[in-house]
Write a protein that binds this DNA or RNA. Structure first.
Length: 272
DNA sequence: CTTACCGCCTGTCGGC
DNA sequence: TGCCGACAGGCGGTAA
């Protein structure tokens, strides 16, 4: 389940592989993932053109070429695997992008919640136009968050995961950031105080940055382009820890379903 | 406008 | 041992 740190980890791994490199060949093995893949457009616009830069918007990766950007989203089970010539495709490989003899990027996504799309230069795209601020952006502060959450009756956990407000936070990091604050996940977002937003933003950024330093979190599906896992899973405090002792007070961690998703927290530490 | 819920999709796991 | 249902969840769509 690639969230912001995993996508950022991937971005950093891809940069030295493809920046300045020309897309030499392109193969698709499916017509659609979450959305139809505009194969002919991508072929026409990308083949023979160099990747100038790779940027990230929330959980979306954008490979910029002179005339637009290739947009990749990994859904929940997506991976980009680097192979050299002649390596057989593993199951669920839906596309292969070749930048050189030793840089065949295989887009693998068993659950097919991912996306491969094209955004022409100077144009927006509905998937990213309405995304909220990046939690790591310096434009973001406690005051901004408080204003953003004004009148919001949804639980703080749902607020954190709403990409139209903050981009890139999924279930794992929402739970971990709340534990670090510590705030109760069921607290209404509109009633969080400025001082609490301040602590939450600090906890959120610390969690995300530490995870990026560890190469992300690998629970099952996420691996870097060279097949190495992320090591942040060992640092998780509450996510997936139902009935295991809280790292602070040893009270068993509880799991509650919020908006259809599991929330893990400590009912003693997170009373706020 | 808001929030809640469904469905997409496959691999894994627990229960029988 | 194998089958079967539940579950994982990002996110667009839709209902309320």
């Amino acid at each position: 389940m690639p969230e912001l740190p995993e996508v950022e980890t991937l971005r950093r791994a891809l940069l030295p592989l493809v920046r300045g490199q020309v897309l030499q060949d392109l193969k698709f093995y499916r017509d659609d993932l979450r959305f139809p893949i505009p194969q002919e457009t991508i072929r026409r616009e990308c083949l023979g053109r160099p990747v100038r830069e790779i940027s990230r918007r929330g959980k979306y990766l954008l490979l910029h070429t002179p005339n637009g950007a290739l947009l990749w989203h990994l859904g929940m089970s997506g991976r980009i695997v680097r192979h050299s010539s002649g390596t057989p495709r593993e199951k669920h490989t839906h596309a292969v992008f070749r930048f050189g003899p030793d840089t065949h990027l295989h887009f693998v996504d068993p659950r097919r919640f991912g996306a491969i799309l094209w955004i022409p230069r100077e144009e927006g795209h509905p998937l990213i136009d309405h995304l909220g601020l990046d939690p790591l952006s310096s434009d973001l502060n406690a005051k901004t968050l408080k204003v953003l959450a004004r009148k919001c009756k949804a639980p703080i956990k749902s607020f954190l995961m709403d990409a139209k407000r903050l981009a890139g936070i999924g279930n794992i990091y929402a739970c971990e950031a709340l534990f670090g604050t510590p705030l109760n996940p069921r607290r209404r977002a509109g009633r969080v105080t400025l001082a609490e937003w301040d602590r939450l933003l600090i906890a959120l950024r610390q969690t995300l940055l530490r995870s990026i330093e560890s190469g992300g979190t690998t629970l099952r599906d996420f691996f870097n382009t060279d097949g190495t896992p992320g090591y942040y899973a060992v640092s998780l405090s509450v996510y997936g820890k139902e009935n295991q002792p809280c790292p602070n007070c040893a009270t068993p961690i509880v799991r509650k379903v919020q908006s259809g998703r599991s929330t893990f927290y400590c009912r003693v530490c997170q009373r706020g």
